[in-house]
């Protein structure tokens, strides 16, 4: 059964889109990630224009982050104050990102930029994650004690001015790195269509030394608002959010996620991370191949003077 996507301007098989949404939803539930970094490249592989894939990916992340954020809010593992400071940076970053996005689109380099950014980011994150999880598995095999680096060590980050007290997180931290982190994630959201949790969570733990229990909830809080904002700005400036595509993906995604969570609870953490790392690397590799392999047609045509 085919369905016409009005914004992407092409007909697609609805079952392929449903399958894609469910599969990414399942993985995102299993690994506890938003799934934007998987859905956007998958859509691009399926010939959805990257402009639409990125904007629709951001919209999809809103749906996949909501239930998690509500859960964390109920449990009290969400620092609203810290989240709001992150959000200030995030909204600024998303605005700057949209500007860069539109500019790259006007000079015809957007598709290339998105692909390169994905290869770099997914390649780096995937390699780091694989490395870490393999070491963790070896440690487990040798039955060594896991020595976690205790959060609370002071680094240059903690010598910056404009310090604020975040009661829920029980930390006293400069607003500068928090806003800067939010800004960087905001740029990624609007340019890549991702929530950015896979970068924000490690950065908050290792760089800002924020207690682990509030990290996921707080990052989800920031992600919901930044992705929702990005969706609206993309809709208003690039007209590139495909509501039909987004709805199919979201419905399949949130259902898939519920089953993913159940499977995820049965698997060991380091095995789970190793699997996710391999998946991330596979997506990066597939995108890298498209950059290097000679395209079927060197020419492309687009309507309009940009």
């Amino acid at each position: 059964m085919t369905v016409y996507l009005p914004i992407a301007e092409l007909s697609v098989n609805i079952f392929i889109i449903l399958g894609m949404g469910a599969a990414v939803g399942f993985l995102s539930g299993m690994f506890g990630v938003g799934g934007g970094f998987l859905i956007t490249p998958l859509l691009i592989f399926y010939n959805i224009p990257p402009v639409v894939a990125v904007a629709t990916g951001a919209n999809q992340v809103v749906a996949s982050s909501v239930s998690g954020a509500i859960t964390h809010f109920r449990r009290g593992t969400l620092d609203i104050k810290l989240g709001t400071v992150l959000l200030v940076g995030g909204l600024l970053g998303a605005t700057a990102g949209i500007w860069v996005f539109s500019w790259l689109r006007s000079i015809g380099q957007l598709d290339l930029f998105i692909a390169i950014l994905y290869v770099l980011l997914l390649g780096t994150v995937g390699t780091l994650m694989l490395n870490e999880s393999v070491r963790a598995m070896r440690r487990a095999a040798r039955q060594e004690q896991v020595t976690l680096k205790r959060p609370g060590h002071h680094s240059w980050v903690h010598r910056l001015p404009f310090k604020m007290r975040f009661k829920k997180s029980k930390i006293y931290l400069s607003a500068i790195p928090v806003v800067a982190l939010g800004f960087a994630i905001g740029v990624l959201t609007s340019v890549m269509g991702v929530g950015g949790g896979f970068i924000m969570v490690p950065a908050m733990i290792y760089l800002l030394r924020i207690p682990t229990n509030v990290v996921v909830g707080t990052s989800l809080f920031q992600i919901i608002f930044v992705t929702a904002y990005t969706t609206m700005v993309q809709a208003a400036t690039n007209y590139s959010v495909d509501i039909v595509l987004a709805t199919i993906l979201m419905v399949a995604g949130v259902i898939g996620a519920q089953y993913g969570v159940r499977v995820g609870q049965k698997l060991r953490g380091e095995q789970l991370r190793a699997l996710l790392a391999l998946l991330v690397l596979a997506v990066a590799l597939r995108l890298a191949v498209t950059l290097v392999v000679t395209p079927a047609d060197l020419y492309s045509v687009s309507v309009g003077s940009f």
């Binding site: 919209n59 999809q60 809103v62 749906a63 996949s64 982050s65 909501v66 239930s67 509500i70 929702a228 969706t231 609206m232 700005v233 993309q234 809709a235 208003a236 959010v241 509501i243 987004a246 709805t247 979201m250 419905v251 949130v254 259902i255 996620a257 519920q258």
Partner: peptide, 15 residues
């Protein structure tokens, strides 16, 4: 854009 976000919120929360 607001409609797109609303659909996402309702879908996520509803599920």
């Amino acid at each position: 854009g607001i409609l797109c976000v609303m659909i996402a919120l309702v879908t996520g929360w509803g599920a």
